[in-house]
Simulated assay, not measured.
Amino acid sequence: MKTFKKKIKIIVEKTKTGFSAYSEEYPIFTTGRTIPELINNALEATQLNFEEEFEITHENLKFEIDFAQFFQYYKVLNSKFLAEKIGMNPTLLSQYVQGHKKPSENQTEKILSGIHQIGQELSEMNLIYKS
């Protein structure tokens, strides 16, 4: 079976019962109560769509979610803290999050890079209890 070389963009939207996801390019649609469940369901739906032609893995999927929905779901991520971490005006980031302004591609990359950096820092941290 051939390996699929392209990234498939999957649009994620928050719903009342969890999340939905779809591709604008292919007939791929799914839902999930949580983000991890949605990611697994999207992979399964994509694999079913291409099962006769290509081998699909997580690396083939590119998930996208808008700013407001991202910060609504990941409430633990404080936009003021993120703005300070990436050297951005907190008011400007807040306007992006609330949908009052649309960030440029460079600003989006800067924000995403900051989110990835925070995620990396958190993944390398161990918590201990000192008595």
Rank of each mutant, 00 (worst) to 15 (best):
Q95P: 04
E64W: 00
Q95A: 10
K101Y: 13
G119V: 01
P103G: 08
L92D: 07
K101V: 14
N106Q: 13
E59P: 00
S104C: 10
V97N: 05
T91G: 13
H100A: 10
K110R: 09
H116W: 01
K101I: 13
I65T: 09
Q107N: 07
S79D: 09
P90C: 01
Q72H: 11
I115K: 05
F67Y: 14
S94D: 10
T57C: 14
N60Q: 06
S113A: 07
K75Q: 10
G99C: 10
L61Q: 08
G99F: 01
F63R: 09
L92F: 05
F67C: 12
K75G: 11
H100L: 13
E53R: 11
T91N: 13
F71N: 02
P90D: 04
Y74W: 09
E55Q: 14
T57I: 11
I56S: 03
F71L: 02
Q69M: 10
V97Q: 02
Y73W: 12
Q72T: 13
V76W: 04
G87T: 10
G114M: 06
G119A: 07
Q107H: 08
M88Y: 01
Y74I: 02
V76D: 07
L82T: 04
F63H: 07
A83Q: 03
L92Q: 08
E64V: 15
Q95T: 15
G99I: 01
K110A: 04
H100G: 04
